[in-house]
Each structure stands twice: as structure tokens, then as C-alpha cells.
Design a protein around this nucleic acid. Structure first.
Lengths: 245, 245
DNA sequence: GCTATCCGATAGTGGAACTATCTATGATGG
DNA sequence: CCATCATAGATAGTTCCACTATCGGATAGC
């Protein structure tokens, strides 16, 4: 197919496709003559992936380029792909350090220890988590950090599902792409679900319906000590706000 | 304090502070003379919040402005705040529609029904989820959609923790700010944890250590019960990749 | 008085993601 | 075979965003 058809099938304007080729995100078409090139379904697929990572995943073109280059390179060990995807996903690149960050790093290490996770606290993800903790404290919401264990429990559920999905892949390129898609688009998917679940939880609370058995009312409240003071003073009407999904 | 001190305490350059004031993100200092203004700890706190939402949360200044304006306006019903936070968080603003999107919306509605969530499938979060589903399919990863229920279970855990945190707030402004911080920074926190959990899960798989009782964490496997379904059917696919955390 | 700091305003910067325009060449249909 | 159209490749321009620089005048504090 020619570039015009590729454009209409993917919904990406022709100049933008050319731009992506220039930027090295998309391989050039196969030249059939000095001014004619043909593109195949691989190009179309690649283009859809780029748009998904860009529009839904919120990655920058530079980050997408890094990821795609690793996906394409069969030399690269698979475990590096996610490292890059993870790194480019975090908008932080290490601001100031200081004792706060040191403390946060220690806390992250403790969390990993506590949960028995075999993951380095010093990798990009651990570092990123430490920075989030610092940011929360700096913004005056250090209390939110108490939710770490609850969040970690949920993260285990999701990671299990992710790996299950990825584990079904056979071909290397498929596998790597699955990891990327799962990480990037999975984040968007979870974010949307989380807001829906918040809407539900607050609807229940608002209707005075919470704590009722299985579903979603605040259950036993938190793993770690401290986060779980269920009864919040109360008495003052509908304390927990209704939230729009 | 004067602007210089505010700058050094917050780590934000003076011209940037002025810029934020111009943009309406930060109230101007109280003028003590035609060319002298004084700032207080409220300004400092606001400044830290802006930087946290910007750097860690990845919100645009425009989005932060919208959120802050609602936070400040006591007229606004609380439930609208999260609606705005959620809307500004999704980088999508409704591309093409079409039958794919229709189908995805139906699926989202079914999911909500299945889980008994009291949340509108037609709100921003539901719409956003539908768009993610479409994007996954378009990118050739429709299979990932099968993980929706696992993801939803995890989202329930997180939403419960979020509401628990928010529920402890008393003052309205505190409450609203907690909702925003929890939604925005919580997303970053969960993302980092998820990557750590992925690293752990794949380390276990890589070491031939998987399938051990279906639990991925330490013995207790997390505090709360809600996230439920402990053993998902992993066990297929030997070559789960090692992933760098 | 002198210098450092400040206020407010205008203008400029650099990066990101395109978009427009141009030339030369080849494809396509009647 | 000729008019029209799409295409490759190249360069330059655009828009938005988040700042950053500079300036003129005023004041603080010594």
C-alpha cells in the first residue's frame, strides 16, 4: 500500500507519518522507485502502537522511540525493555536529593522486605516510588504514605495479571510488545478503573451503605497499623464525599 | 516572608513564582507597599502542592489551575472536584467515535454491572476506560482486556484505601485537597509499586519459583481481603521474562 | 546615600509535536 | 502521450507549553 492508504487506514495524516519516519519511530517504506514507496500491515500495526502509546499512554515521542528501538533489537535482553518503559514513564528524573529522599528510600526498602518482593529498591521503580513519597510529604500529605501497604497489595494483583497475560506470548517481539503495552496502557486502564471504584465507594458511603459485607465498603481497614482508623469521628453527617465517576 | 525567602524555602525560582501568580495558580502576596509584598506559609504550601501535581502527577498547569480553583471555591460541591481531577488526568479528549467505542462502552457497563459498582458508565472515568479498551484493541492487544476483572479487583482495594484516607479529613479544604492529592499522586505511587511487583513476579517466574501456592507476596499475602482471587490461572507459559524494577 | 531586593510588565527561549511548502519525479487514466 | 495527481525528500514554519530574561522604577535596610 502507498502512504495515502496507510494514512487513511490508520487515521494519521501523511505529513505526520513522514515525520515519524524521520524521527525513526517508523521504518521507511520499501522504495519501489525513486519517489514511490510501499508500506505493509507491519507499518500499520506499528503506527497504531505509536498512537496508542502517545494518546492513551501519554508517553513522549522520545520515550516511544527508546522503547521501540529496544523492542526491535533482538540482542537486548527482555528484562531491559520494561526497565526502559518504566523509566520513560516516570516524568521525574531525579531532582534534589537530601535526607528526605534517603529516608524515603529506606522506607521503600523496608516495604520490599516486608512484602518479600524480589525487586531492587534501587532500580528506577524503587527510586520513583521514593520520589513520590518525598513529594507527598513535601505537599503536606505524608499521611497518604500509610496507604503504601494497601496499594502494594493491589499492585500484586495487577502484576500477577500482567505477567499472566505476557506469559501467554510466544514470539519474542510479541512478548516484548505485550510487556510495553501492558505496562503503559495498563496504567491508563487501571487509572480509569480506580476512579470508577472511587465513585462506587463514595456512593456507598454517601448513601450510608458502607461497611456492609463483602463488596466494597471499607473492609477491615488496612494492613499496616495506623492507616485504619475506620470510624472517622463521624456524627457530622456525610463525611465521605460523593465523587463523580 | 518576602518572595526571595519563599523561593529559597520552596526551591522554586523567583521568576517562576511570579509566573504562577500571573497564571492565577498562586494568590499574590499581600502588598505592604507599592513594591513590596509578603507571603505566608499558605503560599508555601500551595507552591509545594503545585510542584507535586506538576512534577509527580504530570498535570499541566492549566489542569492544576482548574483543580485549584475548584478547591478554593466553597460553593462547588465536593463531588465535582474529583470529576475535574479525573477529567484533566486523562490525556484523551474523545477522538473518533464509531462502533468500536460503542462496543467498548457496553463492555464497561457490563463490568460495572458485574461488580455491582454504583458508578455511571457514562461519566468521564467510564468513557476513559472505554477509550482505553478501544486503543488496546486497535493496537492489536485486545487480549489484554480480559484482565479487566483482575484490574477491577485491585482498583477496589486501592479505592477503599483512598476513601479511608480522605474520610479522615475534617475541614472542607483539607478534604478536597486530599481527594486531589490522592487521585493524582496516588496514581504515580501505584504505578511505581506495580512495576516493583512486576519485577518481583517475573523474578519468581524466572527463578523457576512460580506456582508456589499461588501467592506472590510474603506469607500473609497482604492485609486486606477484598482484592480476592488469589490464584489466577498462571501456570501456562514457561517463559515469563525477567523484568527490571 | 548606597546597594540589594523587590514589583510589575513585556519580551524572549527552548522543547515538543506537528504542519506547510517546495521541487523533482513517477503513477494513472483517458 | 499528455494532463493530473500522488509521492519522496527536504527545509522551514507553527502552536503550545513552561518557563526565563530583562527592564524601569520603587523601596528596605544599613
Amino acid at each position: 500500500m502507498r502512504i495515502g492508504e496507510l494514512s487513511s487506514r490508520s487515521g494519521v495524516p501523511v505529513p505526520t507519518i513522514k515525520f515519524y519516519v524521520r524521527e525513526g519511530l517508523l521504518p521507511a517504506g520499501r522504495l519501489t522507485s525513486p519517489n514511490q514507496a510501499s508500506y505493509d500491515s507491519g507499518h500499520e500495526r506499528r503506527l497504531r502502537l505509536i498512537r496508542a502509546l502517545l494518546d492513551v499512554g501519554g508517553l513522549s515521542l522520545a520515550a516511544i522511540g527508546d522503547v521501540l528501538r529496544v523492542v526491535e533489537d533482538p540482542e537486548q535482553p527482555v528484562h531491559k525493555v520494561l526497565g526502559i518503559a518504566a523509566k520513560r514513564l516516570t516524568p521525574l528524573q531525579g531532582g534534589e536529593s537530601g535526607p528526605e529522599l534517603e529516608d524515603a528510600r529506606d522506607e521503600v526498602a523496608e516495604l520490599l522486605e516486608r512484602r518479600g518482593w524480589r525487586a531492587g529498591a534501587d532500580g528506577p521503580a524503587g527510586e520513583s516510588l521514593a520520589e513520590v513519597v518525598v513529594a507527598l510529604r513535601r505537599a503536606g500529605h505524608g499521611g497518604f504514605v500509610e496507604l503504601l501497604d494497601d496499594y502494594a497489595a493491589a499492585a500484586e494483583t495487577v502484576a500477577r495479571a500482567d505477567l499472566d497475560y505476557v506469559g501467554r506470548r510466544v514470539a519474542r517481539e510479541d512478548l516484548v510488545e505485550s510487556v510495553v503495552v501492558g505496562t503503559v496502557l495498563g496504567e491508563a486502564m487501571f487509572g480509569a478503573l480506580r476512579r470508577l471504584a472511587q465513585a462506587d465507594a463514595s456512593a456507598r458511603a454517601y448513601d450510608g451503605d458502607r461497611g456492609r459485607g463483602g463488596s466494597i465498603g471499607p473492609g477491615d481497614g488496612s494492613g499496616k497499623g495506623g492507616a485504619g482508623d475506620e470510624g472517622n469521628g463521624s456524627g457530622k453527617g456525610a463525611e465521605v464525599p460523593r465523587v463523580d465517576g
